[in-house]
Write a protein that binds this DNA or RNA. Sequence first.
RNA 1: GGUUCCAUGGUCUAGUUGGUUAUGACGCCUGCCUGUCACGCAGGAGAUCACCGGUUCGAGUCCGGUUGGGACCGCCA
Length: 590
Amino acid sequence: MVKRTTYCGLVDEKYLNQEIDLAGWVQKRRSLGNLVFIDLRDREGIVQLVFSQEINAEALAVAETLRSEYVISVHGKVAARAESAVNDRMKTGKIEVEVTELTVLNKSKTPPFDIADNVTASEDTKLKYRYLDLRRPEMMAAIRTRAQIVKSAHHYLDDHGFIEIETPDLTKSTPEGARDYLVPSRVYPGSFYALPQSPQLFKELLMTAGFDRYYQLARCFRDEDLRGDRQPEFTQIDLETSFLSAEEIQSLTEGVIAQVMHDEKGIDVKLPFPRITWNDAMARYGSDKPDLRFGMELQDLSEFFKDSAFKVFSGAVANGGQVKAIVAPQAAAKYSRKQIEAIQEYIKRFGAKGLAWLKVDNGEVTGPVAKFVKDQQAELIAKLGAQDGDLLLFVADSKKVVADSLGYLRNFLAKELDLIPANQYAYTWVVDWPLFEYDEGDQHWIAAHHPFTMPNEEDIHLLDTDPHAAHAQSYDIVLNGYELGGGSIRIHTREIQEKMLKALDFTLEQAQEQFGFLLDAMDYGFPPLGGLAIGLDRFAMLLSGRDNIRDVIAFPKNSKATEPMTTAPSRVASAQLDELGLNVEDAPEK
RNA sequence: GGUUCCAUGGUCUAGUUGGUUAUGACGCCUGCCUGUCACGCAGGAGAUCACCGGUUCGAGUCCGGUUGGGACCGCCA
């Protein structure tokens, strides 16, 4: 048993002249011969230990042999540092511990990278030695931010009558949505469980059971390619309620977020958060998850340019498309023609065929297409609210291409032009989503949210006539341009649910096979219900100021969905496969 | 599935037109040092230039492939 009085980072003047015990890792040894300083680190911070002949010769001798990341325990006296030796950059910089007893609890190899916040090692190296990476204070802080969010959410939801209930991780594969992770059944060779993409159906059934308010920190699994804000397994703060309206559910969600912001950031957010319809978000920001920390909105010039001599503009309008622009403030001098062309190349990935641009100079526009708009220039500048020195960027194309490319450009330029204020948290609800969206790849209609989403009351009749025009009672909560969470009012009658599935080209037989248990439940007193899930990983990422959710997951996967530390996924013994009745084809040994 | 970038001591990295003893910093090791905190000073060790093949008198460098990794598009109800 190692004795410990307090954490290294918490030793302060109240321990002055007291004998204390500490334990931790050696951050740094500074030897001046017969005077040795050791920075000792634990989860709360660093304190300086001092060893000398006068204090204890034996301890000094051992201190000389210490190296980075050795684990030690010490006994000593907390002493005030001399005025000249005070370190203002250290929380514990006014004191030091004069060590009389030193025990080496374990040695350490030289770590592959410094245990410090400015570490330069590659992501791969850091993940391979994740336990060392997590020793770094900024990593530990991010993981602790996550823990605080969880604690606050528990607190708020418990206080508001939510009951925490676990749902299965081994469940049934669902056809729509992401690819499932499959788990073979030993008892039924050839049959598979799936890991849940979300607890959606279970939480609805909990409402049927009458729990009324459910929540859970739900692990979700989706076998899709990764991104900075996407991991194959992630956690949702998942909740579901009975008998509440969309507005009431949003208000509860705001309560969770406000509690978290108060507890973790000390910020009392202003409620309610703004609401923007999906249509407006797409029109004004070119995104269904707009970053509201800055302006630079998309402005519609379709009408303005419908008769333009510039055929790219007028032609797009004539073909049912749009011309839209964003005004990049004081960016004219910052972007050369060549740089703008590079941007143009970049937005081609969103389908844009080109990027027209103008610079505003002395009340006039300049640039390659200026000649087409010369006679309208004053009107154009006034309409866009542009100033001298601004850069105007135009995309003329279909509605979708215009939104995608200018929406991307808006975010890109805001970053480059440093228009995004630091330490600001801009929450917004995006509401009134389309119920369906068209999958260009598979050439069919899919549910925009999921197939259990309730249409708007006034659109229910459209399910019989023009289902794909219907809008949904669904809502996303957006923070700083990230989809933080989303939810909806669910369908609770079999009649509407069957119409919905029909609109998605499910036959009744398919529906019965895949969701039969849900449809059956609808025959036994299924209450009106709705809920939402907040992405815990993204929330923690945003509140800890990181740009990758790996940083708030203790043991994440890399971008290729493997884990460099354990080397999962890995091959298994053929006996294991035999037991499962599985045959692996064409899988070379690695 | 696609696009693109990358791979050089433990770590990060320079390496020009194909010819160097493969550069530097940090780290590491040894010695000296009683007020350091980016300690200092002196010395030292440490590289299969990811892998396979090709071009060439000669390849870290050029070409082809493989592997691993990063970012992005598709995908993510």
